[in-house]
Design a binder for these strands. Structure first.
Lengths: 266, 266
DNA sequence: CTAATAGTGTCTATTAGACAGTATGTT
DNA sequence: AACATACTGTCTAATAGACACTATTAG
């Protein structure tokens, strides 16, 4: 190595082309809650935990589904690329997002070496004002774990998808999948697990909700994400410091109306 | 976009050079536990939570400290690059590691766009058989948090370092640092926080220990990483399902000898 | 014996789980 | 009135925190 007198001198002689380079992408696992109107006036709406997927129109994996994503530009921060993709897919800005994991196996993309920084994002999809891209659909997530096997069913108006993963040590491996492109099934799985874990010790759930909500709605969302039922008294006890009662009331259904709560700011 | 008849045809026409590319690195936050012999025959050894840093001999940031790291080769998985760097810095293979976070701000490296996938790794440094690189040193970590401020002191035989970060929302920002290169202070901080969090609900600690250890040693390591004292009876209660008593005993000091435990495998 | 650490018993406080019961809208 | 959900009271079980006490070694 040559001997440079100063950092400035070093930088001027430095040629980035000397190193092999690759492409960097950002993929977004955008989660939200979907409502299905109930036919029975007495019953509450059905709620679903859902994820946004886009149908691929081009090779590779043409006709299969993938996560909203794109390349990180050479002069763009990863965070900014993630925000740009979120904005493009939903029209929304200032959305909750966090980095999930970076997937970079050499052959994950058949075109060339593309490393992707995956993110999860939580949105209240009722805030989306624009129409979704015509190839983008919300898929309701239903998953179960039996021992080391994780089975995930994704259902939308246009297609039903099922994939399966096996836990080997600390990592999961996709063992069944024929409709999700690239390694995106693994990314979705990683996102579900991250959110399930994080919902227990953070306040991220509130990003899925409108400003005012009932405690039953909040509990249902916890149940959907955790994949199990909770007992109301215990749930209300643990959540009580995070929310505050408002004077608003949600009525209109064939049963006792519910008080609307709001996230408590400290 | 052209119309391709098959995935094969598409791939043959695809030119990776059409996209701007960048360099990918992998940096390793290698944690271990250091022992300092006690002068008083009655007293236990002092233990420290420590991290491996390397002095930079070249520009940029010549003379400052950085994490062991390197580039991810174009035909190399990120995991394999991380293992290669671990092997190079410690001589060890099959070490515990996990991906930490991907840092990719445009200007994080003055040379060019380098995105780095940081990892944490936990080792028992007594297993290192080879000499460390002459510019690599173990730094004992001592940190404290006061409100939103995180102060971290790193001390080694050759240098003492202090850096400070402020919490803004969910993220930390380095506000004082003059001896750590690049954004590596932030990476170290992120690693400490991740480990502190993870030690509470996983079994990763055991990667820092030899096969046989005393419960007091184990408790001390928890205390060092968590940055607070624990009560022995409560600690022993919570840890008891993860360890098993052996018939070995650690004596030789001026006090009651201790039973050696081992990690319980299921 | 003494200093220093190892290890246990037990009381109390806090938190989680379970279940039963009461309350209150709309049709 | 009846259904469906909203919401609360309270008992019990499990877990965490605190402290005091006993045990055991080298010198």
């Amino acid at each position: 190595m040559e001997n440079f007198k100063s950092e400035k001198e070093f930088l001027e002689s430095y040629n980035p082309e000397d190193y092999e380079r690759l492409s960097l992408g950002a993929d977004m696992v955008i989660f939200s809650i979907s409502n299905e109107d109930s036919k029975n006036y007495r019953k509450l709406n059905n709620k679903y935990f859902s994820v946004l997927l886009v149908k691929r129109l081009d090779f590779p994996y043409k006709g299969m589904w993938n996560l909203p994503g794109g390349f990180v530009n050479i002069d763009e921060n990863i965070d900014d690329a993630a925000d740009r993709i979120l904005k493009k897919s939903s029209g929304l800005s200032n959305i909750y997002k966090e980095q999930l994991y970076t997937f970079g196996d050499v052959k994950r993309d058949p075109r060339m070496r593309i490393v992707t920084v995956s993110h999860i994002s939580l949105i209240n999809k009722d805030e989306i004002k624009q129409d979704l891209n015509e190839n983008a659909f919300w898929f309701n997530i239903d998953y179960e774990e039996k021992g080391d096997t994780f089975v995930c069913r994704l259902s939308s108006v246009v297609e039903n998808i099922e994939f399966e993963a096996k836990k080997i040590g600390d990592t999961y491996q996709i063992v069944k999948n024929d409709k999700i492109a690239f390694d995106h099934a693994l990314i979705i799985l990683t996102g579900i697990l991250r959110l399930r874990n994080k919902i227990e010790y953070t306040d991220v759930v509130f990003n899925l909700l409108p400003e005012y909500f009932t405690l039953t709605e909040l509990q249902t969302i916890y149940e959907l994400i955790l994949g199990k039922k909770l007992l109301a008294p215990a749930f209300r006890r643990t959540i009580k410091d995070k929310v505050e009662k408002t004077s608003k009331i949600q009525g209109g259904a064939g049963h006792r109306p519910s008080v609307l709560f709001r996230r408590k700011k400290k």
